[in-house]
Design a protein around this nucleic acid. Structure first.
Ligand code: FES
Ligand code: FES
Lengths: 154, 154
DNA sequence: CGAATAAAAGATAATAATATCTTTTTATAT
DNA sequence: ATATAAAAAGATATTATTATCTTTTATTCG
């Protein structure tokens, strides 16, 4: 009678939502359009109020731009587009996930490694590299090129 | 005023505790000793009642053996020692974490990949390989060889 | 200016993960 | 058999994460 709903993704839902949101906004910004919360929420299939909070964080951390009022919304400028996806992690979950021990030791270090350190460090580094080397503009470009939808149902 | 307590490890605390617990038990089993919950809880620095639940799961899933009553406790037999660490994940969080999409798409597949699929699949595979290729006996052996402690404070 | 639009912020609620406490069952030893 | 030790199971509590609702503030446009 196990539920198997425990920690289905390695990272948080918040981070997954943020990745989708930023990518969606970036695609539309390239077409010169701002995106408002309602449109975004529908476009990436994330509950609007929760998404609002995530967007706040992303703007506060400088990952996105926003403007209130009529015709307002979210967009990416040249600066944003050049940022690595790592900044999205940084603005949501934080990067501690990339430095912490798989077996839960207080400090992960190779001088007193846990039995899975070497292997896990490799795993983390692969993700770290991916998030470092992929820019927000790359995310948008891949979506455009492959015509992938960002809504969850696919 | 962010808290940064969100999802500090990629996987759950439960899984981290289970890895430490099984390793601790395996080390002591090699010396022909059973381990009871109280000793284990102190040895790996995990709250006893919560650990009890995790141990139940591990026994139920066949990763460990247990016996009630005086002189009872937990141990690993030859079968257990040969199991890959993957079975510990399977008995706690489940393996869904190794097949789910980083960006939260319902299905992760390479025919309709999200913009980070290739990179993330690599990251997951690294972890998967590590958990497949490391047996419980290997975990114990590494602890013995390097005299590493499994309690959190190091 | 005043009305309308849209994000920001604040307060509250639901769910899942983690932790604790109590009772029951099973085995051992005297 | 009885007492004792120890895991299993059940019930409850706490905390973190995810989600929702309401109010406030900023911007645009007539
Ligand atoms: S010490 Fe455990 S992952 Fe580095
Ligand atoms: S589709 Fe996103 S990780 Fe595979």
């Amino acid at each position: 009678m196990r539920s198997f709903l425990i920690c289905m993704t390695m990272l948080s839902k918040t981070f997954a939502y943020a990745l989708r949101a930023v990518t969606y906004v970036a695609v539309h910004s390239k077409e010169g359009k701002k995106v408002n919360l309602e449109q975004l929420s529908e476009g990436i299939d994330v509950p609007q109020p929760f998404l609002g909070k995530i967007m706040q964080d992303l703007v506060r951390q400088g990952v996105l731009k926003s403007m209130k009022g009529p015709g307002g919304g979210f967009w990416t400028d040249e600066f944003s587009l050049k940022l690595p996806a790592f900044e999205i992690l940084n603005a949501t979950d934080g990067y501690a996930v990339l430095t912490s021990c798989l077996m839960g030791k207080k400090n992960c270090n190779s001088s007193l490694p846990c039995p899975l350190h070497a292997e896990y460090a490799l795993c983390r580094d692969t993700l770290f590299d991916a998030l470092r080397n992929t820019r927000i503009s790359d995310l948008a470009q891949k979506v455009e090129a492959k015509e992938i939808f960002l809504a969850e149902d696919n």
